[in-house]
Simulated scan of single mutants.
Amino acid sequence: MDRRKGIVTLAGNPMTLLGPELKPGDPAPAFTVVDADLKPVGLGDLGGGVRLLSAVPSLDTPVCELQTKRFHQEAAALPPEVTIATISMDLPFAQKRFCATHGIDRIRVLSDYKDASFGLAYGVLIEEVRLLARSIFVIGPDDVVRYVEIVPEVGTHPDYDRALAAVRSLAG
């Protein structure tokens, strides 16, 4: 198991990421998370088009909430072959409540609580707190990673514009 230090901080404290360092051009790793009904969901279940995977530590925090809402809002303007998924360690029940409260229905919200399969496969599981590091992965229709952003300070926003530009370049 790869252990990478110094990639992210949480409230200024250095954290350890578990899993490989993915780069554009790498094959997208398989993973299994669960949806609000506790059904397993893998990469292939997110469609065969462009997929934007938005990892957040917890939907119950302001930046994670805003990140999820932003991608939900952007989804309306993207081609139908684009799938956006927010993945966190939150329990599926809490995710379902969050989506109902905020009217989130254009993106998938998925939980990695069970096995940390996504976090370990994509190298964003924070060892010290067992949460996902804030990160964005864009996967092409060929199941190849095309864009990666791991946000250095977990409490700050990702570069939404760059991630969306990567999606549009693949979907257009």
Rank of each mutant, 00 (worst) to 15 (best):
residue 163 A to I: 12
residue 45 D to A: 08
residue 111 S to L: 10
residue 138 V to M: 03
residue 17 L to I: 10
residue 131 L to I: 13
residue 162 R to Y: 06
residue 104 I to Y: 04
residue 41 V to H: 00
residue 8 V to S: 03
residue 101 T to M: 13
residue 127 E to V: 04
residue 163 A to L: 13
residue 28 A to Q: 12
residue 124 V to C: 02
residue 91 L to E: 14
residue 43 L to I: 06
residue 148 V to Q: 06
residue 19 G to Y: 01
residue 136 I to W: 06
residue 144 V to Q: 14
residue 66 L to E: 15
residue 71 F to L: 07
residue 170 L to N: 04
residue 157 H to D: 15
residue 22 L to W: 09
residue 140 G to M: 04
residue 134 R to E: 11
residue 122 Y to W: 12
residue 67 Q to C: 05
residue 4 R to N: 04
residue 36 A to F: 15
residue 69 K to M: 11
residue 17 L to N: 10
residue 80 P to N: 02
residue 124 V to E: 09
residue 107 I to D: 03
residue 152 P to L: 03
residue 64 C to P: 12
residue 97 R to G: 00
residue 159 D to A: 05
residue 22 L to R: 14
residue 65 E to F: 00
residue 157 H to R: 05
residue 50 V to L: 08
residue 39 K to Y: 05
residue 67 Q to I: 13
residue 148 V to F: 01
residue 92 P to A: 06
residue 146 R to H: 13
residue 156 T to G: 01
residue 130 R to E: 14
residue 108 R to Q: 15
residue 49 G to M: 05
residue 61 T to E: 12
residue 90 D to V: 11
residue 151 V to K: 00
residue 105 D to V: 07
residue 118 F to A: 02
residue 124 V to L: 07
residue 153 E to H: 12
residue 39 K to P: 04
residue 32 T to L: 11
residue 101 T to H: 15
residue 21 E to T: 13
residue 148 V to D: 07
residue 16 T to N: 06
residue 139 I to F: 06
residue 130 R to Y: 12
residue 165 A to N: 12
residue 51 R to C: 06
residue 74 E to F: 05
residue 55 A to C: 15
residue 152 P to Y: 02
residue 71 F to C: 05
residue 156 T to I: 00
residue 156 T to W: 02
residue 38 L to V: 13
residue 31 F to Q: 04
residue 80 P to T: 02
residue 38 L to M: 14
residue 163 A to M: 11
residue 158 P to F: 04
residue 97 R to E: 10
residue 97 R to T: 13
residue 126 I to F: 01
residue 54 S to M: 11
residue 86 T to W: 02
residue 162 R to P: 07
residue 150 I to R: 00
residue 113 Y to D: 14
residue 99 C to N: 08
residue 87 I to F: 02
residue 68 T to I: 09
residue 132 L to W: 11
residue 155 G to P: 00
residue 113 Y to K: 08
residue 157 H to N: 12
residue 70 R to A: 10
residue 116 A to H: 14
residue 87 I to S: 01
residue 105 D to Y: 00
residue 21 E to Q: 15
residue 106 R to W: 08
residue 120 L to Y: 00
residue 73 Q to V: 01
residue 103 G to S: 06
residue 69 K to T: 01
residue 46 L to D: 01
residue 96 K to E: 14
residue 57 P to T: 08
residue 10 L to N: 12
residue 9 T to A: 12
residue 20 P to D: 07
residue 124 V to A: 04
residue 63 V to K: 03
residue 119 G to Y: 08
residue 164 L to A: 03
residue 28 A to T: 10
residue 67 Q to R: 08
residue 122 Y to F: 14
residue 171 A to D: 07
residue 171 A to S: 14
residue 132 L to V: 09
residue 150 I to N: 00
residue 131 L to V: 12
residue 23 K to L: 14
residue 169 S to H: 07
residue 27 P to I: 02
residue 134 R to W: 08
residue 107 I to L: 10
residue 172 G to I: 04
residue 144 V to D: 00
residue 45 D to T: 05
residue 43 L to K: 05
